[in-house]
Amino acid sequence: MNNVLYTIFVISISLLLGKLANYLLAALPASLYGMIIYALFLQLNWFSIEKVTKTNQWFIKHMGVCLVPAGMGIINHFELIQQHGLALVVVIFSTTFILLTVIGYLSERFLITPDNHQSKTTIDSK
């Protein structure tokens, strides 16, 4: 229970700082600043990773349900889908396929370097 409260506390602090960052700097949404601040807190060891891991994983596992209301907005778009359904599918399919090709091809070409072996052994030996 303590760890649950601890996690909620750390996430709330990060989100509040995120809101402040959003107010001062604009650009990114507050929650994204919050995410980066939270990662930074963990990196700097200001808060315990062991204490937040379990509750945090529970949050992530169940966050999908928070997206349902946004998705339900589709109810207002039947006309758009009727009119442009094919165009929507064409855009989504073709661009997904372009992204797969660009990233896959470049990664295959540039990430298979000699230090590949070295980095792998370093990870293994850890």
């Binding site: 601040i37 939270y38 990662a39 990773i49 928070c66």
Partner: peptide
């Protein structure tokens, strides 16, 4: 939809902290 989204505001509110929680996998 307007009514539905008003009634499910709680889920919408939880979206912000949920995104912050993605900081752990990021780290």
């Amino acid at each position: 939809y307007q009514q539905y989204s008003e009634k499910t505001q709680l889920l919408n509110l939880l979206l912000e902290p949920a995104i912050v929680a993605l900081g752990l996998p990021l780290y």
